[in-house]
Protein backbone atom coordinates (compact mmCIF):
# COMPACT_ATOMS: atom_id res chain seq x y z
CA UNK A 1 0.00 0.00 0.00
CA UNK A 2 1.24 3.55 -0.76
CA UNK A 3 0.37 7.00 0.51
CA UNK A 4 -0.49 9.89 -1.80
CA UNK A 5 3.14 10.94 -1.52
CA UNK A 6 4.28 7.51 -2.66
CA UNK A 7 5.36 6.29 0.80
CA UNK A 8 4.81 2.65 1.67
CA UNK A 9 2.04 2.08 4.18
CA UNK A 10 1.67 -0.67 6.76
CA UNK A 11 -0.22 -1.04 10.03
CA UNK A 12 2.10 -1.59 12.99
CA UNK A 13 -0.02 -4.63 13.96
CA UNK A 14 0.79 -6.21 10.58
CA UNK A 15 4.49 -5.55 11.07
CA UNK A 16 4.19 -7.06 14.56
CA UNK A 17 2.62 -10.33 13.37
CA UNK A 18 5.19 -10.63 10.60
CA UNK A 19 8.07 -9.91 12.98
CA UNK A 20 6.88 -12.66 15.36
CA UNK A 21 6.77 -15.11 12.47
CA UNK A 22 10.15 -14.00 11.11
CA UNK A 23 11.84 -14.24 14.52
CA UNK A 24 10.23 -17.56 15.49
CA UNK A 25 13.23 -19.65 14.49
CA UNK A 26 15.86 -17.25 15.80
CA UNK A 27 14.27 -16.89 19.27
CA UNK A 28 12.39 -19.32 21.50
CA UNK A 29 9.25 -17.59 22.74
CA UNK A 30 5.55 -18.24 23.26
CA UNK A 31 2.70 -16.12 21.85
CA UNK A 32 -0.67 -15.75 23.56
CA UNK A 33 -3.85 -14.19 22.32
CA UNK A 34 -7.36 -13.69 23.63
CA UNK A 35 -9.56 -14.54 20.64
CA UNK A 36 -8.30 -11.64 18.53
CA UNK A 37 -5.44 -13.33 16.68
CA UNK A 38 -6.69 -12.29 13.26
CA UNK A 39 -6.93 -8.67 14.40
CA UNK A 40 -3.74 -8.50 16.47
CA UNK A 41 -1.99 -10.50 13.71
CA UNK A 42 -0.58 -13.09 16.06
CA UNK A 43 -2.30 -15.50 13.64
CA UNK A 44 0.66 -14.83 11.33
CA UNK A 45 2.90 -16.39 13.98
CA UNK A 46 0.44 -19.19 14.67
CA UNK A 47 0.63 -20.24 11.02
CA UNK A 48 4.37 -20.84 11.15
CA UNK A 49 4.65 -21.91 14.77
CA UNK A 50 1.40 -23.45 16.06
CA UNK A 51 3.10 -25.34 18.89
CA UNK A 52 4.14 -22.13 20.62
CA UNK A 53 0.86 -20.30 20.12
CA UNK A 54 -1.81 -20.45 22.84
CA UNK A 55 -5.28 -19.00 22.45
CA UNK A 56 -6.58 -18.05 25.89
CA UNK A 57 -10.11 -17.21 24.77
CA UNK A 58 -11.89 -14.04 25.79
CA UNK A 59 -10.20 -13.92 29.19
CA UNK A 60 -7.55 -11.22 29.22
CA UNK A 61 -6.84 -11.26 32.94
CA UNK A 62 -6.13 -14.97 32.83
CA UNK A 63 -4.01 -14.51 29.70
CA UNK A 64 -1.70 -12.14 31.58
CA UNK A 65 -1.42 -14.67 34.40
CA UNK A 66 -0.71 -17.46 31.90
CA UNK A 67 1.99 -15.22 30.42
CA UNK A 68 3.51 -14.74 33.86
CA UNK A 69 3.48 -18.48 34.52
CA UNK A 70 5.12 -19.39 31.22
CA UNK A 71 7.70 -16.60 31.57
CA UNK A 72 8.57 -17.88 35.04
CA UNK A 73 9.80 -21.08 33.38
CA UNK A 74 12.37 -19.10 31.41
CA UNK A 75 10.81 -18.35 28.02
CA UNK A 76 9.82 -14.88 26.81
CA UNK A 77 6.10 -14.50 26.14
CA UNK A 78 4.17 -12.12 23.90
CA UNK A 79 0.59 -11.57 25.04
CA UNK A 80 -1.68 -9.78 22.61
CA UNK A 81 -5.12 -8.30 22.68
CA UNK A 82 -6.56 -4.83 22.13
CA UNK A 83 -4.95 -2.05 24.17
CA UNK A 84 -8.20 -1.45 26.00
CA UNK A 85 -8.23 -4.97 27.44
CA UNK A 86 -4.48 -5.39 27.89
CA UNK A 87 -3.93 -2.17 29.78
CA UNK A 88 -7.43 -1.67 31.11
CA UNK A 89 -9.20 -4.89 31.95
CA UNK A 90 -6.10 -6.88 32.85
CA UNK A 91 -4.31 -4.10 34.74
CA UNK A 92 -4.02 -5.90 38.07
CA UNK A 93 -2.66 -9.05 36.42
CA UNK A 94 -0.12 -6.95 34.50
CA UNK A 95 0.95 -4.95 37.53
CA UNK A 96 1.03 -7.66 40.20
CA UNK A 97 1.50 -10.79 38.11
CA UNK A 98 4.00 -9.59 35.50
CA UNK A 99 5.66 -6.32 36.47
CA UNK A 100 6.14 -6.85 40.22
CA UNK A 101 8.17 -10.03 39.66
CA UNK A 102 9.73 -8.34 36.57
CA UNK A 103 8.87 -11.27 34.33
CA UNK A 104 9.90 -11.48 30.71
CA UNK A 105 6.48 -10.73 29.22
CA UNK A 106 5.85 -8.49 26.23
CA UNK A 107 2.36 -7.09 26.22
CA UNK A 108 1.77 -6.30 22.57
CA UNK A 109 -1.44 -4.31 22.51
CA UNK A 110 -3.01 -3.46 19.18
CA UNK A 111 -5.91 -1.18 18.28
CA UNK A 112 -4.59 1.52 20.58
CA UNK A 113 -5.90 5.07 20.37
CA UNK A 114 -8.72 6.70 18.47
CA UNK A 115 -7.72 5.23 15.11
CA UNK A 116 -9.66 2.09 16.01
CA UNK A 117 -12.36 4.17 14.37
CA UNK A 118 -15.84 2.76 13.96
CA UNK A 119 -15.91 0.64 17.15
CA UNK A 120 -16.04 3.82 19.18
CA UNK A 121 -15.10 4.87 22.71
CA UNK A 122 -15.29 1.45 24.40
CA UNK A 123 -12.48 0.24 22.15
CA UNK A 124 -10.51 3.45 21.69
CA UNK A 125 -7.93 3.22 24.46
CA UNK A 126 -6.44 6.65 25.10
CA UNK A 127 -5.12 5.93 28.60
CA UNK A 128 -2.82 2.94 28.09
CA UNK A 129 0.49 4.81 27.91
CA UNK A 130 -0.33 6.49 31.20
CA UNK A 131 -1.50 3.26 32.84
CA UNK A 132 1.57 1.31 31.78
CA UNK A 133 4.09 4.09 32.30
CA UNK A 134 3.39 4.38 36.02
CA UNK A 135 4.16 0.70 36.67
CA UNK A 136 7.72 0.36 38.04
CA UNK A 137 10.09 -1.35 35.61
CA UNK A 138 7.67 -1.40 32.66
CA UNK A 139 9.11 -0.36 29.29
CA UNK A 140 6.57 1.50 27.14
CA UNK A 141 7.15 1.57 23.40
CA UNK A 142 4.94 3.03 20.69
CA UNK A 143 6.50 2.61 17.24
CA UNK A 144 5.61 4.99 14.43
CA UNK A 145 5.74 2.59 11.50
CA UNK A 146 6.32 -0.95 10.28
CA UNK A 147 10.13 -1.04 10.35
CA UNK A 148 10.32 0.47 13.83
CA UNK A 149 7.76 -2.08 15.01
CA UNK A 150 9.95 -4.87 13.66
CA UNK A 151 12.91 -3.33 15.46
CA UNK A 152 10.89 -3.02 18.66
CA UNK A 153 9.86 -6.69 18.61
CA UNK A 154 13.51 -7.70 18.27
CA UNK A 155 14.53 -5.27 21.02
CA UNK A 156 11.79 -6.69 23.26
CA UNK A 157 13.18 -10.20 22.77
CA UNK A 158 16.68 -9.00 23.58
CA UNK A 159 15.49 -7.25 26.75
CA UNK A 160 14.81 -9.31 29.89
CA UNK A 161 11.76 -7.76 31.50
CA UNK A 162 8.22 -6.52 30.93
CA UNK A 163 7.52 -4.40 27.87
CA UNK A 164 4.31 -2.72 26.74
CA UNK A 165 4.26 -2.45 22.97
CA UNK A 166 1.57 -0.07 21.71
CA UNK A 167 0.40 -0.88 18.20
CA UNK A 168 -2.24 0.43 15.85
CA UNK A 169 -4.96 -0.86 13.60
CA UNK A 170 -4.55 1.72 10.86
CA UNK A 171 -2.07 1.48 7.99
CA UNK A 172 0.51 4.22 8.50
CA UNK A 173 3.27 5.65 6.30
CA UNK A 174 6.67 4.00 6.47
CA UNK A 175 9.15 6.55 7.81
CA UNK A 176 12.29 4.50 8.36
CA UNK A 177 14.61 2.40 6.27
CA UNK A 178 15.48 -0.72 8.28
CA UNK A 179 19.18 0.23 8.39
CA UNK A 180 18.32 3.48 10.16
CA UNK A 181 17.03 1.31 12.99
CA UNK A 182 20.07 -0.92 13.38
CA UNK A 183 20.82 0.64 16.78
CA UNK A 184 17.20 0.59 17.99
CA UNK A 185 17.00 0.21 21.77
CA UNK A 186 14.47 1.19 24.39
CA UNK A 187 15.41 4.66 25.56
CA UNK A 188 16.51 5.89 22.16
CA UNK A 189 14.72 8.68 20.29
CA UNK A 190 15.22 9.64 16.65
CA UNK A 191 15.74 13.02 15.02
CA UNK A 192 13.61 12.89 11.90
CA UNK A 193 14.00 16.57 11.10
CA UNK A 194 16.44 19.16 12.44
CA UNK A 195 15.19 22.64 13.30
CA UNK A 196 16.06 25.48 15.66
CA UNK A 197 12.75 27.30 16.32
CA UNK A 198 10.59 24.64 17.92
CA UNK A 199 10.80 20.94 18.71
CA UNK A 200 7.88 18.65 17.94
CA UNK A 201 8.10 15.41 19.93
CA UNK A 202 5.84 12.70 18.56
CA UNK A 203 5.06 9.03 19.02
CA UNK A 204 3.14 6.34 17.16
CA UNK A 205 1.08 7.21 14.12
CA UNK A 206 1.24 10.91 15.01
CA UNK A 207 4.92 11.03 14.07
CA UNK A 208 4.03 11.00 10.35
CA UNK A 209 1.57 13.84 10.97
CA UNK A 210 4.21 15.76 12.91
CA UNK A 211 6.51 15.48 9.89
CA UNK A 212 3.75 16.84 7.63
CA UNK A 213 3.21 19.72 10.05
CA UNK A 214 6.94 20.46 10.15
CA UNK A 215 7.13 20.55 6.38
CA UNK A 216 4.30 23.06 6.23
CA UNK A 217 5.85 25.12 9.04
CA UNK A 218 9.19 25.25 7.22
CA UNK A 219 7.38 26.51 4.13
CA UNK A 220 6.11 29.33 6.36
CA UNK A 221 9.58 30.07 7.71
CA UNK A 222 9.32 28.19 11.02
CA UNK A 223 12.20 25.78 11.45
CA UNK A 224 10.54 22.95 13.33
CA UNK A 225 12.52 19.93 14.49
CA UNK A 226 10.77 16.58 14.74
CA UNK A 227 11.76 13.91 17.23
CA UNK A 228 10.21 10.46 17.06
CA UNK A 229 9.97 8.84 20.50
CA UNK A 230 9.13 5.17 20.04
CA UNK A 231 10.36 4.65 23.57
CA UNK A 232 8.22 6.61 26.00
CA UNK A 233 9.70 4.82 28.97
CA UNK A 234 12.60 5.01 29.27
CA UNK A 235 12.53 8.39 27.58
CA UNK A 236 15.54 9.64 25.60
CA UNK A 237 16.12 12.43 28.09
CA UNK A 238 19.47 13.43 26.62
CA UNK A 239 18.01 13.99 23.18
CA UNK A 240 14.99 15.79 24.58
CA UNK A 241 17.14 18.05 26.74
CA UNK A 242 19.39 19.03 23.86
CA UNK A 243 16.43 19.97 21.65
CA UNK A 244 14.60 21.79 24.45
CA UNK A 245 17.74 23.84 25.05
CA UNK A 246 18.31 24.45 21.36
CA UNK A 247 14.75 25.41 20.43
CA UNK A 248 13.29 26.71 23.70
CA UNK A 249 9.80 25.51 22.68
CA UNK A 250 8.37 22.00 22.74
CA UNK A 251 5.14 20.52 21.37
CA UNK A 252 4.27 16.90 22.14
CA UNK A 253 2.00 14.94 19.82
CA UNK A 254 0.28 11.64 20.56
CA UNK A 255 -2.82 9.63 19.84
CA UNK A 256 -3.51 9.40 23.57
CA UNK A 257 -4.88 11.51 26.38
CA UNK A 258 -2.86 14.64 27.07
CA UNK A 259 -2.80 13.35 30.66
CA UNK A 260 0.00 11.00 31.59
CA UNK A 261 1.22 9.91 28.17
CA UNK A 262 4.12 11.22 26.07
CA UNK A 263 3.11 14.80 26.88
CA UNK A 264 3.05 13.97 30.56
CA UNK A 265 6.43 12.25 30.40
CA UNK A 266 8.05 15.12 28.50
CA UNK A 267 6.48 17.75 30.79
CA UNK A 268 7.64 15.90 33.90
CA UNK A 269 11.19 15.74 32.62
CA UNK A 270 11.45 19.25 31.21
CA UNK A 271 9.67 20.73 34.23
CA UNK A 272 12.52 19.52 36.40
CA UNK A 273 15.46 19.91 34.04
CA UNK A 274 14.72 22.52 31.40
CA UNK A 275 11.41 24.34 31.75
CA UNK A 276 10.51 25.78 28.37
CA UNK A 277 7.15 26.86 26.92
CA UNK A 278 5.28 23.75 25.93
CA UNK A 279 2.04 22.51 24.38
CA UNK A 280 0.53 19.01 24.25
CA UNK A 281 -1.41 17.81 21.23
CA UNK A 282 -3.55 14.82 22.16
CA UNK A 283 -7.01 13.85 23.32
CA UNK A 284 -8.24 16.57 25.67
CA UNK A 285 -9.46 14.39 28.55
CA UNK A 286 -12.57 13.19 26.74
CA UNK A 287 -13.74 9.83 25.39
CA UNK A 288 -13.58 9.08 21.68
CA UNK A 289 -16.49 8.21 19.42
CA UNK A 290 -17.34 6.20 16.31
CA UNK A 291 -16.33 7.21 12.82
CA UNK A 292 -13.84 6.44 10.11
CA UNK A 293 -10.36 6.59 11.64
CA UNK A 294 -9.34 9.66 9.66
CA UNK A 295 -12.54 11.46 10.61
CA UNK A 296 -12.15 10.59 14.30
CA UNK A 297 -8.56 11.86 14.30
CA UNK A 298 -9.74 15.13 12.68
CA UNK A 299 -12.65 15.52 15.09
CA UNK A 300 -10.33 15.20 18.07
CA UNK A 301 -7.81 17.68 16.61
CA UNK A 302 -5.07 15.22 15.81
CA UNK A 303 -4.23 16.36 12.26
CA UNK A 304 -1.06 17.91 10.85
CA UNK A 305 -2.98 21.21 10.70
CA UNK A 306 -3.78 20.95 14.40
CA UNK A 307 -0.10 20.39 15.17
CA UNK A 308 0.90 23.33 12.96
CA UNK A 309 -1.67 25.63 14.58
CA UNK A 310 -0.51 24.57 18.06
CA UNK A 311 3.12 25.27 17.16
CA UNK A 312 2.25 28.73 15.86
CA UNK A 313 0.21 29.53 18.99
CA UNK A 314 3.10 28.47 21.17
CA UNK A 315 5.61 30.58 19.26
CA UNK A 316 3.21 33.54 19.42
CA UNK A 317 2.91 33.14 23.19
CA UNK A 318 6.68 32.82 23.50
CA UNK A 319 7.17 36.21 21.84
CA UNK A 320 5.04 37.98 24.45
Amino acid sequence: MKTEKGLEKQATRDAYGQALADLSSEFDFVVLDADLSKSTKTATFQKVCPARFVNCGIAETNMMGIAAGIASTGRPVFASTFAMFAAGRAYDAVRNGIAYPHLNVKIAATHAGLSVGEDGATHQCIEDIALMRVIPGMVVCCPADGPSTTAAVRAALQYDGPVYLRLGRLAVPTLYEPDQLADFTFGKGYVLREGADVCIVATGLMTARALDAAQSLWAGGVRAAVLDMPSIKPLDEKLLLSFAQKTGAVVTVEEHSVLGGLGGAVAEFLGEHCPVPMRRVGVRDVFGSSGKAADVLSTYHLTAQDIERTVLELLEQKKK
Binding site: V30, A51, R52, V54, T61, N62, M64, G65, I66, A67, A68, G69, I70, A71, S72, T73, R75, D92, A93, N96, G97, Y100, P101, H102
Partner: peptide
Protein backbone atom coordinates in the same frame (compact mmCIF):
# COMPACT_ATOMS: atom_id res chain seq x y z
CA UNK B 1 9.02 -14.36 43.66
CA UNK B 2 11.95 -12.07 42.95
CA UNK B 3 13.08 -11.61 46.53
CA UNK B 4 12.40 -14.90 48.29
CA UNK B 5 14.13 -18.18 47.43
CA UNK B 6 11.64 -20.96 46.78
CA UNK B 7 8.69 -18.74 45.92
CA UNK B 8 7.48 -19.62 42.42
CA UNK B 9 4.93 -16.85 41.89
CA UNK B 10 4.28 -13.41 43.33
CA UNK B 11 0.75 -13.55 44.66
CA UNK B 12 -1.53 -11.63 46.94
CA UNK B 13 -3.99 -10.03 44.60
CA UNK B 14 -6.52 -12.86 44.81
CA UNK B 15 -7.41 -14.91 41.77
CA UNK B 16 -4.16 -14.31 39.88
CA UNK B 17 -1.95 -17.10 41.20
CA UNK B 18 -4.07 -19.83 39.69
CA UNK B 19 -3.52 -18.28 36.25
CA UNK B 20 0.25 -18.30 36.74
CA UNK B 21 0.04 -21.95 37.81
CA UNK B 22 -1.90 -22.75 34.62
CA UNK B 23 0.81 -20.94 32.64
CA UNK B 24 3.51 -23.06 34.25
CA UNK B 25 1.54 -26.22 33.52
CA UNK B 26 0.91 -25.18 29.92
CA UNK B 27 4.62 -24.39 29.48
CA UNK B 28 5.41 -27.97 30.52
CA UNK B 29 3.01 -29.23 27.85
CA UNK B 30 4.53 -27.00 25.16
Amino acid sequence: RKGTPGVDASTGSLGLGISAACGMAKAAKI
